[in-house]
């Protein structure tokens, strides 16, 4: 039996967020709802990365004065996912901004937010 740790709970929550986000992006028709689903998806990925770097009793990976190297390396969390999460937040914001801007433009033209109306296939 796998021990239920905070890390495992984090992974499960991340999986739920990712599935809900993916499902929302695939099945919801309203474009704004699709974008909200994307933010859920992006948060799920962030949580996955944060949970990956979690360590029981871990410390921030900054070498402070007076800290021994051995102590630091045995307790510091993995630094890398933190950097990725930071970048992912920035990228998520810019993607959302661009998508919302395009949706606003298309809403002005079509007067609706339905993806099945605006983005339906057409013969060129």
């Amino acid at each position: 039996m796998t021990e239920v740790t905070i890390q495992l709970l984090g992974f499960i929550a991340a999986a739920i967020l990712i599935v809900v986000g993916m499902g929302g992006m695939l099945f919801l028709d309203n474009l704004i709802k699709k974008i909200i689903a994307f933010t859920l998806l992006s948060d799920g990925v962030n949580l996955l990365l944060v949970a990956l770097a979690y360590r029981e009793g871990g410390i921030v990976p900054i070498l402070l004065p007076g800290m021994s190297i051995y102590d630091f390396t045995s307790r510091a969390i993995l630094i890398f996912p933190a950097g990725i999460v930071l970048t992912n937040i920035v990228i998520g914001v810019s993607t959302t901004a661009i998508l919302v801007a395009l949706v606003i433009m298309l809403y002005r033209r079509y007067g609706t937010l339905k993806a099945s109306v605006i983005l339906k296939g057409e013969r060129r």
């Binding site: 992006m25 695939l26 993806a115 099945s116 983005l119 339906k120 296939g121 057409e122």
Partner: peptide, 12 residues
């Protein structure tokens, strides 16, 4: 041609 339409839902 219909299956390769640029419909978002179809591509998804």
């Amino acid at each position: 041609e219909k299956e390769n339409m640029n419909d978002l839902n179809r591509v998804l």
